[in-house]
């Protein structure tokens, strides 16, 4: 598996060793840099209810060049399309980014995503924190302006997402109904906590590919 980590946080990325130990096959890490700041500014999500792209303002392109992208959300499908064209995707290939990504759903709204899967995949580390729904307490505290801690084990979710893409790439296997299985499509932080490992069926399929020790 090839894993690209966006170069802006390559030096601070904490999960190289954990991911290497998790997969029993070889994982190659490389830094990745998006080369087109105009395109990144163009594919920003502007309105949660509309999938519309606009000619960017000069400051948006300039901010992309300078990495001033806090609070910016990107259309995950377009970002993945760009990435998939830019790298060799003949083997499972994933980009781990710190950008927020969202996809436009059938309900006519954008939703923040932890991962967008296609011929390759993009995983958003910030998405792991922000995308899953939190317990009510979190939103109540936020509504009063308090920074409530997000209770998510990022390393665990990262491994889950990487395995989900691997399962899709190798076997076109999409998600598992078992709430305890790593391939379960979790939408809330509480669902993530319930994941313990692999269900029996998926243990048979992927038991040789991953090392589940210490997953919690």
């Amino acid at each position: 598996m090839k894993i690209y980590v966006e170069d802006s946080f390559w030096d601070s990325f904490l999960f190289f060793e954990g991911i290497r130990k998790f997969f029993r096959f070889s994982v190659e890490f490389n830094p990745y840099k998006f080369k087109d700041p105009y395109f990144l500014a163009y594919i920003r999500v502007r309105n949660p209810n509309k999938r519309e792209f606009y000619e960017p303002f000069p400051v948006e392109v300039e901010n992309e060049k300078r990495g001033l992208i806090k609070g910016v959300i990107y259309d995950g499908v377009e970002l993945l399309r760009y990435f998939s064209r830019d790298v060799d995707i003949s083997e499972p290939t994933v980009l781990i980014t710190n950008r927020l990504i969202a996809t436009f759903g059938e309900d006519g709204r954008y939703h923040l995503r932890m991962i967008v899967i296609g011929p390759a995949a993009i995983i958003s580390l910030k998405g792991i924190l922000y995308a899953p729904a939190k317990p009510l307490q979190y939103y109540m505290m936020h509504s009063f302006g308090f920074d409530e801690k997000i209770d998510v084990k990022v390393d665990k979710v990262l491994k889950m997402l990487l395995l989900q893409f691997y399962a899709y790439f190798k076997h076109e296997e999409i998600f598992c109904e078992s709430e305890e299985c790593m391939l379960h499509n979790c939408h809330t932080t509480e669902e993530i906590k319930k994941v313990k490992g692999l269900c029996e069926r998926h243990r048979k399929m992927f038991g040789d590919s991953v090392n589940l020790r210490g997953l919690s």
Binding site: P48, F57, N63, L68, G71
Partner: peptide
Amino acid sequence: RGHGSMWVEESEDAVINHTS
């Protein structure tokens, strides 16, 4: 573009960075 309703903590940073 119209402001979004999605909540992210970094929206304040975004407002500062896009003041132009």
